Simulated scan of single mutants.
Amino acid sequence: MKRASYLQCAPKLMQHLFTQEQLLNEEVTLTLDTKLWELVKLRASQLNQCGYCIIMHSRQAMEQGESAQRIIALNAWRDMTGFTAKERLALTLCEQLTNAQPIDDTLYCALSEEFSDDALVTLTVAINAINAWNRVVKMFKPEPDE
Rank of each mutant, 00 (worst) to 15 (best):
1 M>E: 07
135 R>E: 04
60 Q>P: 02
42 L>T: 02
146 E>T: 09
74 L>Y: 05
113 E>L: 12
4 A>T: 14
140 F>Y: 12
117 D>V: 12
48 N>V: 04
36 L>C: 01
33 D>Y: 00
60 Q>H: 10
15 Q>R: 13
101 Q>R: 13
3 R>G: 04
6 Y>M: 09
35 K>T: 14
15 Q>I: 03
129 A>F: 12
79 D>E: 15
52 Y>S: 09
97 L>P: 01
92 T>L: 14
133 W>L: 07
131 N>P: 04
145 D>R: 11
65 G>D: 08
118 D>Q: 14
102 P>I: 08
37 W>S: 12
121 V>K: 05
64 Q>G: 07
133 W>S: 05
39 L>H: 03
51 G>P: 10
39 L>I: 01
12 K>N: 13
98 T>W: 02
120 L>N: 01
67 S>D: 03
28 V>N: 00
86 K>P: 02
125 V>E: 00
85 A>Y: 08
123 L>Y: 01
22 Q>T: 08
37 W>T: 02
11 P>F: 09
135 R>F: 05
58 S>G: 08
105 D>G: 10
8 Q>Y: 13
12 K>A: 09
99 N>L: 15
74 L>M: 11
11 P>T: 07
94 C>P: 00
50 C>T: 05
93 L>I: 06
23 L>Y: 10
114 E>M: 07
60 Q>G: 04
37 W>Q: 08
42 L>F: 04
116 S>A: 06
88 R>C: 12
27 E>M: 03
97 L>C: 04
43 R>F: 13
126 A>G: 11
114 E>F: 02
89 L>C: 13
4 A>M: 14
101 Q>M: 12
54 I>Q: 04
56 M>K: 11
120 L>H: 05
71 I>K: 07
12 K>L: 14
77 W>H: 10
68 A>Q: 09
101 Q>W: 06
27 E>W: 00
110 A>T: 11
114 E>S: 12
111 L>F: 07
146 E>Q: 09
105 D>N: 13
18 F>L: 15
94 C>E: 01
38 E>W: 01
56 M>I: 06
76 A>Q: 15
137 V>L: 06
87 E>I: 02
2 K>A: 11
115 F>D: 01
39 L>Q: 07
30 L>G: 00
50 C>L: 09
146 E>F: 03
36 L>F: 00
59 R>K: 13
51 G>R: 08
39 L>D: 01
133 W>V: 06
106 T>F: 01
140 F>H: 08
45 S>I: 04
11 P>R: 08
118 D>K: 14
3 R>A: 12
78 R>I: 10
39 L>G: 01
82 G>I: 11
59 R>W: 02
31 T>M: 03
36 L>D: 00
129 A>L: 10
73 A>N: 15
40 V>D: 03
17 L>T: 14
35 K>A: 13
9 C>D: 15
78 R>D: 07
6 Y>Q: 07
15 Q>G: 04
83 F>T: 07
15 Q>H: 11
53 C>H: 06
49 Q>A: 14
139 M>G: 09
52 Y>E: 07
68 A>V: 07
67 S>E: 04
30 L>D: 02
67 S>H: 06
135 R>N: 08
72 I>W: 14
109 C>R: 15
98 T>F: 03
108 Y>P: 02
100 A>L: 13
28 V>H: 00
75 N>H: 15
81 T>R: 15
9 C>S: 15
36 L>N: 00
29 T>R: 09
57 H>Q: 13
1 M>V: 07
